[in-house]
Design a protein around this nucleic acid. Structure first.
Lengths: 140, 140
DNA sequence: GGGAATCCCTATCATTTTACTTGGAATTAA
DNA sequence: TTAATTCCAAGTAAAATGATAGGGATTCCC
């Protein structure tokens, strides 16, 4: 019941981009260094975030990555879903296309997984990068 | 962000025991058959539930397993924690002994993982096997 | 134009975890 | 005594994880 490094590194990277929002393209290398993460690995993650339109890239020297939207318009859920796939503690309650067992109609454990799924969704969909920035400023 | 089969099979088995609560020992084989699960594998799971005192066993012929407490006194959280280990989407918010990164004081993503952790805990600690039985009766 | 910085893409790989399977010893009711 | 059952310890195939390797494409800057 843990997130993989994909979701965790990905959120760190996106928060890093949010901190530098408006300062022009941020090179991957510098994100990886600040967040203490393998840069080649992070590259794969950020590629997916780019393909789904959460970040923009600028190629060539002085290039890098930028948020594609305002921090207030990107939720933690957006990021995690891209990197971890559809959410849900069991296949029968996956967000998009649940894979039902042949007993789904009468399965009581499914009710439990649904409640967990909903509560996780509520949390991650309610936190934006802006919320994290605000929290960050309070701490400093 | 999925539970493993350990937690899922374990809850199924415990619910099965709850359904047969008060009827004497239930053989593992019959649980495994009803829940369509490898019996040897389930044996390993139920062994852990026994060691932590959630189920009792009766050895020998006509033996089997029984809940060690009333269904109203066993929560989903009790079961899942035994089988999946301490809960938490990231090591830095594991329930018992979080493994903090060297940046834990200033890490903002940690705040997010904490909120997820709390919301999952709230759900699984609030559902008892009795609740599941009640739901089950409604459905039939 | 050349070189450096950077993104982009594909493939490979070691390790760990998962989800079992195998085999048999110990216990007990009938 | 035998069949049913729990109990225990190892082994194992497949998948997932968390990278690494290597090189091509693009763009800024001198």
């Amino acid at each position: 019941m843990k997130l993989s490094t994909r979701g965790r590194y990905g959120l760190k990277a996106m928060f890093d981009l949010a901190v530098h929002d408006g300062e022009g393209p941020v090179p991957l290398r510098s994100i990886a260094e600040r967040q203490k993460v393998s840069d080649h690995y992070l590259e794969q993650l950020i590629a997916e975030l780019r393909k789904t339109g959460l970040v923009k890239s600028v190629r060539g020297a002085q290039g890098g990555y930028m948020l594609a939207h305002k921090p207030s318009e990107i939720t933690v859920g957006d990021i995690i879903r891209v990197l971890e796939g559809p959410l849900g503690p069991s296949d029968c309650v996956l967000e998009n296309k649940p894979i039902l067992c042949n007993n789904a109609d009468h399965c009581i454990t499914k009710m439990v997984w649904e409640k967990i799924q909903v509560s996780i969704s509520n949390v991650i969909d309610s936190i934006t990068l802006q919320d994290m920035l605000d929290e960050h400023k309070k701490k400093v």
